[in-house]
Amino acid sequence: MDSLLLPLVSTGNVPQLATDLILHSLSSEFQFVRELDSLYLFPFAGPLDYVKGSETSLYEKTGQTFTTPLELFYSSKSKLYIIQQRSPILQPFENTFCKEVIAPLLEELQIGQLLVLDATDNIDESIISRQLRKSAYSIGTCDLSQITDIASEFEEKLQINDQTSQSVNKTLFKFSDTSFQSGVCTAQFVYKLCYHLLHTPKASSLLKEISYLNTFVQEGDNSEDAIAACNQLPQILSSFPRISHYKTPVSWEGVYGVREAPSSFEDGLYI
């Protein structure tokens, strides 16, 4: 069965940047499939992105002239679909987006594993992991193959602890020992996504696993964070292609200014 990578628009746009890196570094492997319904997303249209000096282009022979907010790519080699989401979901249509765009897509593409990429700069106290060895990443797994009777079991899986200021769920995802979080808040998009996928019978019957990779970042020039997040992916998805050389698309130029990111600190100034 195929897998699907879904980058959530979140802090520092790290998931979007990571997706850009994957698609453009492996442009000979990934093919543009089609635009997805972007009705619930902030309007966006842009020129086709490319890597300077590269012989292969992501949009080669596709007949595309512009990029749209939500696009689907596929690698038959890795059996991996990737969504690139270029603009945020309009409030308050996050639930509608999950129910009417993502769930039907999973059904159509017969997705067995969903990998959700997220980033945050603020983690709720109630879900901070108490582990000593914490990394900048949280890797959570929701094993749906263990659920035989969805109707009764996901009620249990999605049970919420209301004692804290925010409702949190600590049973849906099983987080790795080094994760910086031990649960998810119910206000988080990933919780809503899981809820709606589990409530869509066909999608939930096909889906075996939902993996969640959350990166802790500070907003700024997040290009390095994106590379670091990409390096985590083979841990989660065994079929994830190895990337030896990351290629950045031309759209990144100038977004963070034309200077290189400061790396040294002298006389109180970054130079």
Binding site: S38, F42, F44, A45, W252
Partner: peptide, 18 residues
Amino acid sequence: PPEFLTNFTASIMTQLIS
């Protein structure tokens, strides 16, 4: 790139292209 369009212009373009 990195030029882009938003708002109604982008919305109608997306729908026409789709």
